[in-house]
């Protein structure tokens, strides 16, 4: 349906002075701990292959040290790969020369940082304008754009304040506005909401989803928080020790974890809340006219009351009200039993 925006192929990153010598060792199956113990080099990324679709939110998650921040920095080449390619719109950005790389960063990517990384000596307006002023955009035009984004993130009236006069949540709104002001195709968010307290974090997630409805950017969102990943991600990639262990939609990750690491990761997730009817319904079932209907993309939680009242289950319909399957208490019980194992 939609095109591949970013294609990461056979990407390796080893940190250390003689990184290139050890790529073959890594390809030969040596792991992160062994590389560090034997050769004193740190394995950042190990053979990453990932396709990121245009206009989607791709979440990359993993524990700290799993390589997720390293991976996101390869997309705007803040970190040089040891081996492999990163294609953006078909162009290999690992081959760009210095000037082209600057142009690429100025126009194609916006980045939001975990600890905001605002410029403390600039007021909010100048912070949001930073990317535009780097491009030497006309002053009044750049001010108009910056004011538009300040308004979009709800900070009108704060444009003359300095970052340290704002709360963490507000500072990250500035960070988001600064990244969006250059109108990039790709938005790189490196644990962008991790430093915020839970209520503000949910707020910011809502705001991001809201903005994304109209913006349709390609967003790469790094997080270590599974709830956040499930909430935001169209697809979720899971990294462990620099390796990509699984990439899929939320349901795939929850229902078919690729290995113990992933199942450990997802074991505490409230499946009733996250899973959609569509992923557990019985598509071969027959329609029962006396039963109420539920939408296919409804969460299980939201149709529990109707489910408990009905004797034989519910009819599942798609967005055009066509019958697509049935769902019964047994389907739900099965999911709950699976997650207990």
């Amino acid at each position: 349906m939609s095109e591949i925006k970013i294609k990461i192929e056979n990407l390796y990153k080893i940190f250390g002075p003689r990184a290139r010598q050890y790529t073959n060792k890594v390809k030969g199956g040596i792991d992160k701990d062994e590389l560090l113990a034997k050769y004193n080099h740190v394995l950042g990324l190990d053979d990453i292959n990932l396709d990121i679709k245009e206009q989607s939110i791709q979440v990359v998650m993993g524990l700290s040290g799993s390589g997720k921040s390293t991976l996101i920095r390869h997309i705007n080449r803040l970190i040089e790969p040891t081996e492999g390619t990163v294609l953006v719109d078909g162009e290999d950005i690992t081959k760009l020369n210095k000037a082209d790389l600057l142009e690429f960063r100025r126009n194609k990517t916006g980045m939001v940082f975990q600890r905001f990384a605002l410029f403390p000596h600039h007021n909010i307006l100048d912070n949001v304008q930073f990317g535009l002023s780097i491009k030497n955009l006309d002053k009044s035009e750049s001010k108009d754009k910056a004011m538009y984004w300040i308004e979009k993130v709800g900070l009108t009236g704060f444009e003359n304040k300095f970052p340290n006069q704002l709360s963490g949540g507000m500072q990250q709104r500035v960070g988001l506005a600064r990244a969006l002001a250059i109108d990039p195709d790709i938005l790189l968010m490196d644990e962008a909401f991790s430093a915020l307290d839970p209520l503000i974090r949910t707020d910011m997630q809502d705001q991001l989803l809201d903005l994304q409805k109209n913006l349709k950017k390609t967003i790469i969102f790094i997080t270590h928080d599974l709830d956040e990943a499930l909430r935001l991600g169209d697809r979720i990639a899971i990294l462990n020790g620099g390796k990509l262990v699984q990439d899929g939609i939320a349901e795939e990750i929850l229902l078919n974890p690729a290995d113990d690491y992933v199942s450990n990761f997802v074991k505490d997730v409230n499946r009733i809340k996250v899973l959609k009817i569509g992923s557990i319904m019985n598509a071969d079932g027959n329609k029962n006219e006396s039963n109420p209907s539920v939408m296919i993309d409804e969460s299980i939680e939201n149709c529990l009351p109707a489910m408990l009242e009905s004797e034989s289950g519910l009819n599942v319909v798609d967005s055009e009200k066509n019958f697509v399957g049935v769902i019964s208490k047994n389907n739900i019980a099965e999911i709950l039993r699976k997650s207990k194992d």
């Binding site: 803040l78 142009e103 960063r105 940082f113 410029f119 403390p120 000596h121 780097i134 790189l188």
Partner: peptide, 27 residues
């Protein structure tokens, strides 16, 4: 000068002179 702030300047495509005069020297 804070490394994260410098990284932000890099991420927005600032060249050496822009980094020096807009970020490093003022800070």
């Amino acid at each position: 000068v804070n490394k994260e702030v410098l990284e932000a300047a890099d991420a927005f495509g600032a060249n050496r002179m822009q980094k020096l005069f807009r970020v490093q020297l003022p800070l």
